[in-house]
Amino acid sequence: MIAAPPASAQPPPAPAPRRAGRGRELAWLGFTLPALVWFLVFTVGPLVSLFYFAQTNWRGLLSPRTFVGGQNFARLLDDPVFHHAILNSLVQLVVSLPIVIAGAFMIAYYLALRPRGHRFVRAVLFTPVLLSAPALAMIFVGVFSPSGLVNSTLESAGLGELATPWLAVESTAATAIMIVIIWSSMSVSAVLLASRLNTVPSELFEAAELDGCGHWRRMWLIAWPACRESVGVVTTLQFLWTLFSSAAIVLLLTRGGPGTATVNLSFLVYDYAFNQSKVGYSQAIAVMLFVVGVLGLVGIRRLFRQRY
């Protein structure tokens, strides 16, 4: 007697219906060729050549270059300006990232509760997205200038003796840059996180509320883990923005000064290449910048993905 197959067994699954066979797939992928070529020529190509240029002695964009191997990197080791730039970049990241992420998350939680005026708050929070780096920097030229917004405010509050030229004093210029970074990015992160929080099922919060959890504990013990992945995304964006885009803020507000007080890595790449005729050397710094960027991205990924 032939054993009947168990009733639950299904016939072997038919191959999933494909829209295109092998050969046709290749034909289809021809459509992706222009986009791919563009991406390789204008994005990947320059990035790869960066690693070669970093090993050249090269004084001006239009002058000849000679291959010198790791010499530029050796020079980095005892360049005080580079050390200052690394330090400033790290400080900018270490100080601004936690403030922006924690602040944005708390604002997002607040918005998700839909208190009175939350629509207005959202609209205001969204406005810095629209500012270009030059517009942002120029607005803050007015805020921090000797007769600008901050000093006028101090003056009218009777604190006139605290007024200083904020961007021209070594001890305050770096803080001013940091304030611009935080001002312009915390709001956007808050809007992003708020839209994620709106999709968290409200039963989660209701159960916690019944258990007597206040807003503070609900925020950090329930909402935060629920949004873990989005927090990771926002942290990534913020990290990239702080590391790279801050160059424009530095360039337009202080040009790295006074002295070298506010130089950071991304600014230095620009400054050495275009203002100081150290093109090859600047590319060694660009490689370092790239390495810091990749390490940071990998680190952030680890931090926010591990607890699944």
């Binding site: 991406f39 020529v41 204008f42 994005t43 990947v44 190509g45 320059p46 990035l47 050549s49 960066l50 240029f53 964009l61 990239l240 590391l243 790279f244 885009s245 160059a247 991304s266 790449v269 620009y270 290449a273 093109v279 600047s282 590319q283 660009a286 490689v287 910048l289 790239f290 960027g293 990749v294 991205l297």
Partner: peptide, 17 residues
């Protein structure tokens, strides 16, 4: 992967291009 490529690092090679 392109998301993770910080274009800014390639500022000078882009000018060269």
């Amino acid at each position: 992967m392109g998301f993770l490529i910080p274009g800014f690092a390639a500022l000078v090679p882009t000018v060269l291009l």
